[in-house]
Amino acid sequence: MTDKIISVKNLVKKFGTFTANDNLTFDVYKGEIFGFLGANGAGKTTTIRILCGLSSPTSGELKVAGFDVYRDAEKIKKNIGYMSQKFSLYEDLTVTENIQLFAGIYGISRKVRKEKEAELLKKLNLEEAKNKLIGGLPLGWKQKLAFSVAIFHDPKIVFLDEPTGGVDPVTRRRFWDLIYEAANNGTTIFVTTHYMDEAEYCNRVSIMDAGKIEALDTPANLKKMYNAKDMDEVFVKIAR
């Protein structure tokens, strides 16, 4: 894992006099599960919006999937996937309609879409539910489908913004099975979470506080560095 898929140098983002991102520098490698942690209001969402090409930095050099965030924001959008707890699928469309919509947006041909759609429905055990409205499905199913739709166009990177909030512990782990699988297939995973056990599943973790990255390393090294028994303790030591 030495190919950089995201490279961030001296990223600064200001809103008026408020500095949301204060000189961030970090790299994310291809195929990595990168945990992006921090307290509420630490500046995580600001960074993610910039990396997704939805907001421009005040200053700094940034490349995502090989593209410059200032010049090629549109190309970045085509090469990434995004899923959040708040928005993922259209509740009043059916399972297949949602897949078709997202495939259409990303310009996937009808033939390829049909093949992949059949494959996906089988994998998620959703064949019988394919004509049901999303709104009526259990949250765990929705989340798995939302993730699968987010990586349907084979993006190089997928951004997951608190993907597992509110679900039960079994569903949460089944969701991580999908993340592991995608990472194993070479997709880079950029994930935020408030569950500290999930931080342990990441290859590397960065912890933000008040707009700055306070720590960035493997979970094992962070625990050693902060003399902590788990990531929860590391997080509390940094963010409190």
């Binding site: 307290a39 509420n40 707890q85 608190e162 909030g165 509110g166 408030h194 929860d232 509390v236 963010a239």
Partner: peptide, 13 residues
């Protein structure tokens, strides 16, 4: 009702 959902680990404590 779920006062700590979506709240970070420190604020939860």
């Amino acid at each position: 009702d779920e006062p700590t959902t979506g709240v970070d680990a420190v604020s939860r404590k």
